[in-house]
Design a protein around this nucleic acid. Structure first.
Lengths: 344, 344
DNA sequence: TTGTAGGCGTTATCAC
DNA sequence: GTGATAACGCCTACAA
């Protein structure tokens, strides 16, 4: 069955087998209605029989349409990014657009390398998280002549389009809610090296709220590399007193460490939320089934993917309404207050 | 800065700016040492200045090397597949190979469509999970003239190379271990429609062990679509009696439902493992920090990615040792017995 | 060390 | 409706 060492079947092969020219095969395949139904079905039968699979690279070279959407995420192995990529892929499915994925590992350096390498594939659009970009990354993006969509955080100076929310505002809002519940000595738990991460923006929001309420924002616990894990949270929870001995609430940069903190506190007989309140970020599924359930900042990563897909297809559709599309889309974010924090 | 509407810079443009031929630019870029250091650095400076990014599609068309490795996963939004993809990507990073990702959503139909669409990009190898393939998928794979690597489950009739383990053997082993702990009325919790999933193989292993020990394997709870979630497990845990009222242990198809089952049992005051034991599959991080910690089947998805990368690069390196590479690689799998099951 | 000619597999364009 | 020809942007092979 397998054609050992033989060249792959080409459009020319199909054409010869069908006794027509390549162009007729090409037309039959693209189904423009420009070919007699009779010859078309004959050609398709031969295509089937010969197991011909068109070479899209050659096609793209001719049409100047790669069909790629370059997509960067900090990490594939993270629910939010995974969901976003999956919903983006799904929403793009019937548009002939395909995702070209890369992960930055939360590094601006890697991002730069990746952007350049993806650009070589001539994507028709590029989607990437905004955490600040290197200068060269910005130059590359600006010169690429394709729509640029920055996700998750709304940048101060967007390159093209922006879809997301202000991590600072959102973290401020959650912190304010914690303050309202009566917490005063709130700690913020986040990674080290998050300058280039949305963690830094969340830290700033935390500070805003605390200082706005006349409270001290000095209880800042920084630990490990992004992304923070359950294990990291567990470690911090187990050694909390060594950081600050008067904490009455911990706001964690993600639900994973929040879960870890809670499990560590429980091991020490510290009650959550009676002794210490815990809040997370991201609404992981585990937070709704943990005991206690975890208060968290909630947003819909799949919506992000869908909105992104819609934007891209609109932009690429080619009609001049393109210029009219809003440059900025905001995603809805809410605080889901649950059992791991005091009740009102 | 941005060249409005202008064509993208091409190699010819660079060549003209440098006063050399395209070939010299090409050589300077590929750094073969075939160009005078002086002209080379001059060219590179111009490349930089003009923000030239080579068109890899055109290059691939000429070299017949796309640099793509087509990679399928059932779902991106799953720790195991995420980790595997990430480690595969990382391990491939400096080989000039790039992943072209697709997710099947646990559907043979989608897999077939995806395989065909990915094959159009002329990948140099294709990696995909084995859960059984459609007939046409197999034909496409066999005709693609590239290495085929089937992951996770070792197929009865491998197409090319295989990396993974026998889900049946592994599930049998865990079940045997549960039986040894004294459990008799063990239930198996899995999805409906898992015929085309490795869940079916695990079911078979469960049955093997139960019947091998003279026990009944009839306590089979099937619920929802793959992948099973915490929520699904929670639902089952909440309604356990409606399925079977004499269960003393539940073996779940993944750690997610196991976590959900436990949380539901705890809500009802049913003690784990004293009243009912619970075991999962996959060693999710949450299982080590849940209370009780969850007994589970443990394997290393990242190792899978690394081994796959190694195999592919070996295969593509071109030396004839290629034919000598083993067709089958087994991944190490162990039972991690923790607090959610009785102690020995 | 550099350049020229030709081709990779497809499609746009313009004849027929 | 169908075919011939010329790109698309790069690299191989060979020549200088």
């Amino acid at each position: 069955m397998q054609n050992e060492k033989k060249q792959l079947v080409t459009m020319e092969d199909v054409a010869q087998a069908a006794g027509v020219s390549r162009m007729t095969v090409s037309r039959a395949l693209s189904d423009n209605g420009l070919v007699t139904e009779k010859t078309r079905s004959r050609i398709l039968a031969i295509v089937e029989e010969m197991n011909y699979v068109p070479d899209q690279m050659a096609g793209s070279l001719a049409t100047k349409r790669s069909g790629f959407v370059a997509t960067l995420v900090p990490s594939i192995n993270n629910v939010h990014y995974g969901k976003m990529v999956q919903s983006l892929t799904d929403a793009l499915e019937n548009t002939g657009l395909q995702i070209l994925l890369g992960h930055t590992d939360y590094s601006a350096q890697r991002e730069e390398v990746l952007v350049e390498s993806l650009l070589k594939r001539r994507p028709e659009a590029i989607v990437l998280p905004f955490d600040g970009h290197s200068k060269r990354t910005v130059t590359l993006l600006k010169n690429a002549q394709i729509p640029v969509v920055q996700l998750w955080e709304t940048p101060p100076k967007p390159i093209g389009y922006t879809i997301g929310f202000s991590n600072r505002d959102v973290a401020r809002s959650m912190t304010e809610e914690l303050i309202q519940l009566g917490y005063k000595n709130i700690a913020f738990l986040c990674e080290t090296n998050d300058e280039w991460t949305r963690g830094a923006a969340r830290r700033a929001g935390f500070k805003d709220a605390m200082e706005g309420a006349g409270l001290s924002a000095h209880r800042m616990i920084r630990f490990g590399q992004p992304p923070m894990s359950i294990k990291d949270g567990h470690f911090i929870g187990s050694n909390l007193k060594q950081y600050y001995d008067d904490i009455d609430c911990i706001f964690c940069v993600s639900d994973a460490p929040a879960f870890g903190v809670i499990s560590a506190l429980k091991e020490q007989g510290i009650s959550v939320p009676d002794d210490i309140g815990v809040a997370g970020f991201g609404n992981f599924e585990v937070s709704r089934f943990s005991n206690p359930t975890i208060s968290t900042v909630k947003f819909d990563a799949e919506e992000l993917g869908r909105v992104t897909a819609k934007l891209i297809t609109d932009l690429l559709s080619g009609d001049k309404s393109k210029t009219k599309l809003p440059k900025r889309y905001d995603i809805n974010v809410t605080n889901a207050m649950r059992e791991s924090t005091r009740q009102q």
